[in-house]
Design a protein around this nucleic acid. Structure first.
Ligand SMILES: [Mn+2]
Ligand SMILES: [Mn+2]
Ligand SMILES: [Mn+2]
Ligand SMILES: [Mn+2]
Lengths: 151, 151
DNA sequence: ACGGAAATGTAGCCTATGCTATATTTCCAA
DNA sequence: TTGGAAATATAGCATAGGCTACATTTCCGT
């Protein structure tokens, strides 16, 4: 029995609501970029701290083995987010740096928002590492407005 | 050059802070259960609506093909979260129902919190689908307290 | 009652993301 | 200057979670 899942189409000029499938598809798309976001953000941090991001340091900070980090860096290269030469450090491209900047801004804003609504700082930092990737532009704006609205 | 990344160990009775690696490892662990959470929550919904969860309906609601849903259900079975017989509906076990209940509660609470801080309902629903999986118990409690504290 | 349509299952392919074991390169200290 | 330690690379394995193509089963309308 095929159930017609079509939501009542609003023919009154309103936008059609996002379906369940839309939401899950969106979440899956984000999941596939979350890792790149963490890598670029981390590489930016390490570069700022040490002048370069070494594979070993990347791996240690992420809590993975270095072959895992190495393989991920190959994918980052393929996507044009980093450049690197064998046995040398990893550096962000313009695209990578842009991604890092945006992710870091999201990260900080999420932490601030969580703390503002009463989440303990330690938990806020922990949870933000996952949450940050799923916060849309719209939600980000709302967070900013909320934080501004309480000086 | 191996950089000593050890954070300044607090020998004053305070808890040691979570390292970056701790946070990323936590996020990776959650990522591996997020899919199960979405499936159990959805199976609970479908069972409530139709008396059973059919593979086709699961797939359509998630926006994936039915072989993908079928394979996922096999994993859910292996983990003891559902039972099912060939060509029949899928049903939650006690463990699966418990997971579904908890995820649904998290989902709703996240949406309510987002809306409370000014996120438009549509964006709140969209973002919550990803965020819900990364909200810890501690953060959940804080959300509850915050929502209570405003009538 | 049965034949076709819908639902479900299976096979096989792909990529991502983890790991261990091993090879290679770089770098530093004696 | 050089030999061993540290860093990096590579090979190979595994699982998850997507997909398409095809096989099988169920169900329903005539
Ligand atoms: Mn993150
Ligand atoms: Mn982050
Ligand atoms: Mn979800
Ligand atoms: Mn959900």
């Amino acid at each position: 029995m095929s159930r017609d899942e079509l939501p009542p189409e609003p023919e009154d000029g309103t936008l059609p609501e996002a379906t369940d499938a839309d939401r899950f598809t969106n979440a899956r798309a984000i999941r596939s970029t979350a890792l790149f976001e963490d890598y670029t953000e981390l590489i930016a941090d390490l570069t700022e701290e040490f002048g370069e991001a070494r594979i070993t340091d990347i791996a240690r900070r992420l809590g993975v083995t270095h072959p895992t980090a190495n393989k991920a860096v190959l994918r980052l290269k393929r996507e044009g987010l980093v450049i690197s030469r064998p046995y040398r450090g990893v550096f962000l491209t313009e695209a990578g740096a842009t991604m890092a900047r945006e992710v870091k801004a999201r990260h900080r804003l999420v932490v601030r928002l969580l703390i503002a609504v009463g989440v303990p700082a330690e938990a806020a930092e922990m949870d933000a590492e996952g949450i940050e990737h799923y916060v849309s532009e719209t939600t980000l704006k709302a967070f900013e407005a909320y934080l501004d609205g309480r000086e």
